[in-house]
């Protein structure tokens, strides 16, 4: 399929798998919360006690950091940096890449050991990689979701909201 015309569509049952996976990761590691992002920075799911309003901005920034580190990898003739770790005074962030498409991000404090986070994140990324694989194969669902009437309504909304 033309990559231009592909949108990633996450069906209801797959989102449930993703949520379960993130909840388990948060519980098993004792982290504060976990986020699954698309590489474009959009938040697919967030779990944990992070009832934060700035989650959209957080997604954009983390994806930016990751995309930036990918370019660093290229300059070093490294294939990719699969994971990155940012250490703060109170909170730490561990970020792992899933198949060049999604980014898993875990935010945890001093009470959680980084080794445990790494091991369990590896397990979670494998699980999420198979979800992603299934999501990619379900492209045919797009037309059922977005019919021509959707596009017409969308254009009306755009004209209404983005007027001079």
């Amino acid at each position: 399929m033309d990559p231009q015309l592909t949108s990633i569509i996450v069906p209801t049952e797959e989102l449930r798998h993703i949520e379960e996976c993130l909840v388990r990761l948060v519980e098993d590691t004792g982290s504060d919360y976990a986020l699954l992002l698309d590489k474009s920075g959009q938040v697919i799911s967030s779990q944990g006690d992070g009832d934060r309003q700035d989650i959209t901005a957080l997604g954009a920034l983390i994806a930016g950091v990751f995309a930036s580190s990918r370019e660093v990898a290229k300059l070093l003739r490294e294939r990719d940096f699969r994971a990155s770790f940012q250490q703060g005074v109170r909170e730490n962030i561990f970020i792992a890449l899933i198949e060049e498409q999604w980014i898993l991000c875990i935010i945890f404090n001093k009470g959680t050991h980084i080794g445990l986070v790494k091991v369990l994140t590896k397990k979670a990324t494998d699980e999420l990689a198979s979800v992603l694989e299934r999501v990619r194969q379900q492209h045919k669902a797009r037309d059922e979701v977005l019919g021509s009437s959707f596009r017409t309504s969308m254009e009306d909304t755009i004209d209404l909201l983005f007027r001079d």
Partner: peptide, 15 residues
């Protein structure tokens, strides 16, 4: 690549 989240009924586009 837009992200369409059917469960949460959300569509995200990046410009």
């Amino acid at each position: 690549m837009a992200l369409i989240n059917v469960a949460a009924r959300e569509i995200h586009c990046k410009i």
